[in-house]
Design a protein around this nucleic acid. Structure first.
Lengths: 167, 167
DNA sequence: TTTTATTTTCAAAAAAAATTGAAAAATCTA
DNA sequence: TAGATTTTTCAATTTTTTTTGAAAATAAAA
């Protein structure tokens, strides 16, 4: 397989994988393209390579910047803005975990904190409900803490320690 | 807050949370409804409570059964089929991890195994590309192993061990 | 300042995903 | 077996999400 074919396949696969996890296919594809691009690309190049419109390109790149998965790069002498993505997949994974935690897990936990039935506390059904919600809240909190720990950790240290307890 | 209000809010929140993770909102809502239902429900009850059509109900319940998140229950004397969902959220989480691994992570790993540039192996760009892909493959494999370990583990044992290494 | 290049916005269009509902198939009962 | 009930299927419709592209805004150059 040559480089261009491989890049193309990877971009398609990353787009498809991302969309199964609630990430807009085009956004995932732009991310993939920048991950496998040697040099920073500008919006025109992204448009051209992925065959998408200027508006679409602009919106999705901005969203990737919000997610801290893509950075703007200033290239001296160039008028246009250029973009790059982190290539170290471990850093990428940590960023995604951090952002999903902040955007989705934390709001869920806040919501669950306020979700309690105070009437009929002796009723069996009410008890079960409150326990189910509590369980979800606690698991979510635990997941959040785990993510924090992973984010702080060094890759090799983390996996080595993890494997050690798992033996 | 009373039980019915709380259930309603939980169902809506679970639906919204699920849809951010690529799970059909209705499927997540049916799952939520069954998680907080004291007794098993039949399709008519689910339709009625969530205000959805028979076809939609049927398809999404079947999908939840595929995901092993919902079980068919036979109630003697009843002609209709009834459905329940596991209420232990830890078991639910493990099931979701196992299924997503099988459906999404494993196919990705298989794909990445075949994705290698064999031409121009000395070219710097080719080297970087192969390394990026290798990194993603290895991280995915590691994630898969971690999921396997979590699935096999007992909840408390797992978190205790985890916390220990994280001190 | 005016002109030119570039980026951003967003209403409208297109595409994708979810939902309906009625007919067909399957299952149960007598 | 025939009739009644329940479940499943799927073409058509609706809803949601994504994408487009041209106009507006912004930024740089002349």
């Amino acid at each position: 397989m040559n480089l261009d074919e491989a890049k193309k396949e990877f971009i398609a696969a990353w787009g498809s994988f991302g969309s199964k996890w609630g990430i807009n296919r085009t956004m995932a594809q732009i991310h993939a393209l920048l991950m496998v691009s040697h040099a920073p690309l500008n919006a025109d190049e992204v448009m051209e390579i992925l065959n998408i419109s200027r508006g679409n390109t602009n919106m999705n790149i901005r969203e990737l910047i919000n997610w801290q998965l893509v950075d703007r790069v200033i290239i001296s002498g160039e008028r246009k803005e250029f973009f790059t993505a982190e290539k170290d997949i471990w850093k990428v994974a940590k960023t995604i975990m951090r952002e999903r935690k902040r955007r989705e897990l934390e709001p869920l936990i806040e919501f669950l904190k306020d979700l309690k039935v105070n009437e009929d506390m002796n009723n069996e059904e009410v008890k079960t409900f409150n326990e189910t919600i509590k369980g979800i809240k606690e698991l979510s909190e635990q997941a959040g803490k785990t993510i924090d720990t992973i984010i702080k950790s060094d890759e090799h240290w983390f996996w080595n320690a993890f494997l050690k307890i798992m033996r």
